[in-house]
Structure formats: C-alpha cells, structure tokens
Design a binder for these strands. Sequence first.
DNA 1: GACAGATATTCGCACATGGGAATATCTGTA
DNA 2: TACAGATATTCCCATGTGCGAATATCTGTC
Lengths: 110, 110
Amino acid sequence: MDKELLRQINQLHAEICGGLSDPKRIAILYSLADKPQSVNELAAALETPQPTLSRHLKILRERGMVTAERDGANIYYALADKRIIKALDLLREVLGDHLSKRSALAEAIS
Amino acid sequence: MDKELLRQINQLHAEICGGLSDPKRIAILYSLADKPQSVNELAAALETPQPTLSRHLKILRERGMVTAERDGANIYYALADKRIIKALDLLREVLGDHLSKRSALAEAIS
DNA sequence: GACAGATATTCGCACATGGGAATATCTGTA
DNA sequence: TACAGATATTCCCATGTGCGAATATCTGTC
C-alpha cells in the first residue's frame, strides 16, 4: 500500500479513537447504545450541561460515530455502528484484567 | 454501582482509548502485534526517532497496553493483550464503512 | 573505570482539548 | 411577528499533548 495513504488512514483511525478518549463521550456512546436520545434527554441522563453535550456530540458526529436525525424541534442522536460499543467493551475487558492483575500484585506485595 | 466509582472507571477507560488516539501509537501496536521488538527495532521499522518512540511506549506502558522485558542492553516490548488489536480492527472496519458510505454519497451527489 | 550502544528523560514550544458562561440559531406555535 | 423550547456556537481560560533537540541513565565489554 502507498505509504502516504497509509499515513492518512492511520490518522483517521487515530481520530476515531480520539473520539473515545473522553469519559463523557464514552458515557454518551453507551447511553446512545441503549436507545437513541435527544440532546436534552442525554443532558438529563448524564447530568451534563447541554452546551457540553452539544460539543461532544459534534465531535462524535464529525467522526461518523453517531447519527443525528431531526424530529420537530428535537434532534435525536443514535449510535452509528454497534461495533464501536464492541470495541469499547473489549477495551473495558482489558482494563478489568489489567486492574485485577495489579491488585493481585498489590495483595501479593503487601 | 457507586456513581463515583463509575466515574473513575470511565476515566481509566478513556485513558486506554487515549492510548490509541495517535497514529504513531496505532502503528506501534500493530507492529508489536506482529512480533515483540526492541525500541531500536521499532524506531527502524516505523522510521521514527528513538526518543519519540520511548515517549509513546511509556504512555502505552503506563496504561498497561504493552509489556517491557529487558534482555541485556535491549528492552523488548510486546503487545499486552490481543483484544487491543481486535478493538482497533473493529474501529478500522467502522472507519472503512464510513468512508465508503461517504464516497458513495459523494458520487451520488456529483 | 572507560567506552559504546540502548533506552529514558527533560526542556521549550506550538498546538489541541475541555469546560463554564453567554449568546446565537434554529423549530413549532399562537 | 412574538415567544418559548431545543440545539449549536463562540469566547476565554486552564490544561494536556506531541515533537525536536539535547541530555541523562542504564548495560555489557574491554
């Protein structure tokens, strides 16, 4: 494959991952995986100011990770692809294993 | 689950994802998935200065995403968990689908 | 100890990111 | 048009991130 093209793909790949690299955005994605919601519904569910939600949703939208559909005055956001949640779940598993190893180590040491 | 505990877990989850949110680190992880390598081997393979590699490897190490094992003067890094690559592959698939949709749309429009 | 190779760290800088506050831009309705 | 609700954007600030350059810290060998 062309080296420059590969660089661009890795860049886009990293940007998608960057979409996941914030606790609030992770919460948003899991919440949207449960069901599509409007901005205000998300704001209530996640106890987060609406402008903050809008900014995070813009980031996720630009990366193609959520979809936005207008219904009257509301805009309903939805998870664009369930594989995003599968990826998050995998990484959460890795985190869990890593933590349990560390605490096992911590126990062994103390 | 305790709300504060959940916040901390989401924070760690986001930090792992942050480990993926850089093109060079993605290249490092894929390269290590192929085979464990020393820092200089990685530097040669990825055409990246050694100090840059060391800094990225530190980030991945701190998040438990790679392991480091000393062998003489060399330190061999390895992928800590194959699920990290599985997650990356899933996201790369999502990226691919998103791009092909966009270019299909671009064709349809033009 | 002296030296060379391998790896890690520090410094300085340019740039991106997240958030609160305020405001602007819609949309539907009277 | 006026108004209220929903969503998006902007400004400002504090903080984080990546990198080049230089330097420091190992490790093995003589």
